[in-house]
Simulated assay, not measured.
Amino acid sequence: MTPPTRLDLTQPAPNGLRRGFTTGSAATAALKAALLLLLRGDLRREVDVTLPDGHLSLRVPVQNVRLTDVGAAADVVKDGGDDPDATHGATLWVRVTPLPDALCPMTFHAGEGVGTVTAPGIRVPVGEPAINPVPRAMMRRAAREVAGHEGFAVTVGCLNGEAIARKTFNPRLGILGGISILGTTGVVEPMSLEAYMASVEVYVRVAVHARPDAVVFTPGKLGRDYARETLQVPPQAIVQMSNFVGAALDALQSAVEDTGHPLPLLLVAGHPGKLAKVLNGDWNTHSAHSGMAMNAVARVAAALRLEDATVQALAQANTVDACVALLAGHALGAAVWQGVARQVAAALHGRAPGVGRVRVALFALDGGGLGEAEA
């Protein structure tokens, strides 16, 4: 098997900023370093972590790798690159203990500073530590790489994690006691507004100058994959706008005006947890600059005359994913998501009136379509 290609974090991203690594990558690196010492007597100051796609890896510095009475432990300082969030600079630690049977599946435990899930609606069951599925898979893979199996009990903690978590949505999500261990790619892409929007403006102008039938805006991977794989949109017509919805639309409107090239269609594709925030007037959808979108979904449901109990449940849901689950079996569930898409499309079109039509396609986290509409 070809070994993963190492991604060099010292090389800047296309927007000139420095990438970082997620809390999931940090925990995986700490686990791998602890296992290398425990099983091989190999004391490392940095380790290679295989990223979720299996094709790339990261070299992550580790600290304080040590044996314990029941196994081993290690620390990693989380580096968010030039896009620091609340966990940038936090020290994550991992303790690992072999299970009695190596064939047992890996078990995960919340140490001090890592939260526990207390309410439904996110991708981790109630009662489990707030370690998301992708980081769990990364740690299982790291264990197999070192030990050939995953029969270990893994405890993940974070120094001052409970205080850090108060700066995040975790208390609102019912995640108590600390931070979450997150990440879907293992890498933090630098998304600061000034630098990122400079690159987005270039991408938008290139797209408009090519005189396409449509340009696609997407916050992230879901919409990008839909545009590439389902719609067969050429890469130069896809703009990944991250959280900067309003600024990306402003750049598009400016490009259309400056170039004089009409754009027949703007397609905006992504998860409603991001896109529906514009219905609350939040045009930068980063959690530090916006609220959550469940109330917007509930307002659409109320306008469609769904029963009061369902509307209230939507408004009080912990996440938009919980709203997706609530509406999955409802007779008017599809109508709600179509209504959300229609209102989002109208809001976006209002900010970029030079575009002929704006179409919005909403997707669940598993890639399944929720609803489409245009304005």
Rank of each mutant, 00 (worst) to 15 (best):
K277V: 02
V297L: 10
S287I: 10
M292D: 14
A293L: 10
S254A: 15
R299Y: 04
L267D: 10
V297S: 05
W283C: 09
Q253D: 15
A269D: 03
K277N: 04
L266R: 08
P264M: 07
V256A: 04
V268F: 01
G291N: 09
L267P: 06
L267E: 12
T259K: 03
S290K: 09
R299C: 12
L266G: 04
G270W: 10
L265D: 08
G260I: 05
G281Y: 03
R299T: 13
M294F: 03
L263Q: 03
W283S: 08
G273E: 01
G291K: 07
G291Q: 08
L263K: 01
P264C: 05
G291I: 09
A255V: 04
N284R: 13
A293E: 10
G291L: 08
A269Y: 00
N284S: 14
A255K: 03
L265Q: 12
G270H: 11
N280G: 15
L266E: 04
N284G: 12
G260M: 05
G273N: 02
A288N: 11
A293D: 10
S254R: 14
M292Q: 15
N295Q: 14
K274T: 10
V268L: 07
N295G: 14
P264F: 10
D282P: 00
E257P: 00
N295A: 15
L263R: 01
L252V: 07
A269I: 02
G281H: 07
L263C: 05
W283Y: 11
G281Q: 08
G273L: 01
Q253A: 14
D258N: 12
T285N: 06
N280R: 13
V297M: 07
G260P: 06
L279V: 10
M292A: 15
P272M: 03
D258T: 10
V256M: 06
L267F: 13
N284T: 13
A298Y: 09
H286E: 07
L263A: 04
L266C: 09
S290Q: 09
W283H: 07
V278N: 00
T285V: 09
G291Y: 07
K277R: 11
L252M: 11
T285A: 11
W283N: 08
P272T: 03
P262W: 07
L265C: 12
P272F: 03
L267S: 12
N280H: 12
H289V: 04
D258C: 06
A255H: 03
A296I: 05
L266P: 03
P262G: 08
L266K: 07
L252K: 04
G260F: 03
L265K: 09
A298L: 11
K274Q: 02
T259H: 05
G273D: 01
K277D: 03
M294N: 15
A255L: 06
D258K: 08
E257R: 14
V278L: 02
A296S: 15
A296K: 06
A255I: 04
P264R: 03
E257A: 14
D258G: 11
V278F: 00
K274M: 04
E257D: 14
Q253R: 13
H261A: 05
W283T: 06
P262D: 12
H271T: 08
D258M: 09
Q253Y: 08
M292I: 13
A293N: 09
A293Q: 08
S254T: 14
G281N: 09
V268W: 01
Q253H: 15
M292S: 15
A255Y: 02
A255R: 02
N295W: 05
L267R: 15
